[in-house]
């Protein structure tokens, strides 16, 4: 059996303020779509940064394609895995096309000039995310939704096998959320792109992600198909408030009971 594309083996990580991840094991096979959910402070974003190699675990190992991630060069990792942060900054007025071309650094390095192939990849990424018309526009002039799609185009221009997303749609309206997740789902189906995403919105996770990992206080509370993880008892206990689920038109909806 092939090694998982990315895996964490009993990893621990503490911030100066206290432990965040306390012995998590997690693996995603190539072609999987996994949502990581849990309350604030459960260690979701920290786990994502351990998996992407940005943070080094205090204990335990993180492996990418079966090899310790710290033994890869930075550009080696970036050729395989992209990361879409919750908030992106772009300090200088690059155009949308220039921004996406920066993703080719993983393949070009500091010196090599972009070839026709690089430009094709960038053009395709802009096309997929629907920002091709904005290619020559400075990113400083984009709306929130356009900007987030431009940043997604940049991630796709890395030609990753794996993409990490940290609440990528937290500040986007519903139509953009649907657009972005439909796009990722399409890439997952067509090209086998592996997606590991951190969420607050449990309903989005249930709608788009076949597999859900529920974290609580730095540990894995449940891991499996959305149907088995989103159980009223478990959710209510983990979130510390009464949470109900209902199935409407074949989809599971999760909502808190209102407190009076």
């Amino acid at each position: 059996m092939a090694a998982p594309l990315v895996e964490a083996l009993d990893v621990y990580f503490s911030w100066p303020t206290g432990p965040a991840v306390k012995g998590v094991s997690f693996a995603a096979a190539a072609g999987e779509m996994v949502a990581i959910v849990g309350p604030n402070g459960a260690g979701k974003s920290t786990l994502l940064r351990l998996l992407s190699g940005y943070l080094k675990p205090d204990r335990g190992d993180v492996r990418l394609a079966g090899r310790d991630i710290s033994r890869y060069g930075r550009r080696d990792v970036a050729r395989r895995a992209a990361f879409l942060p919750q908030y992106s900054e772009v300090n200088l007025p690059y155009t949308v096309a220039e921004l996406a071309m920066l993703a080719r650094y993983a393949r070009l390095g500091p010196i090599k000039r972009p070839t026709g192939h690089d430009r094709d990849v960038v053009a395709e990424a802009l096309e997929l995310t629907g920002v091709a018309d904005l290619a020559a526009r400075p990113v400083s002039q984009l709306s929130g939704g356009e900007f987030q799609r431009a940043v997604l185009a940049r991630a796709l221009a890395q030609e990753p096998a794996l993409i990490f997303l940290d609440e990528p749609t937290a500040h986007l309206d519903v139509s953009y959320q649907v657009q972005i997740f439909s796009l990722l789902k399409g890439l997952n189906g067509r090209e086998g792109l592996t997606v590991v995403a951190v969420f607050h919105d449990l309903n989005m996770a249930a709608a788009y992600f076949p597999r859900v990992v529920l974290l609580a206080e730095g540990k894995v509370e449940a891991d499996g198909v959305a149907e088995s993880v989103f159980v009223e008892d478990t959710l209510s206990r983990v979130y510390g408030c009464v949470i109900k689920t209902r199935t409407v038109e074949g989809r599971k909806f999760i909502f808190p009971e209102l407190q009076h």
């Binding site: 940005y54 970036a78 895995a81 992106s88």
Partner: peptide, 10 residues
Amino acid sequence: LGEESAFHLG
């Protein structure tokens, strides 16, 4: 793009 994004771009 910020240090974290630069890191993730390689």
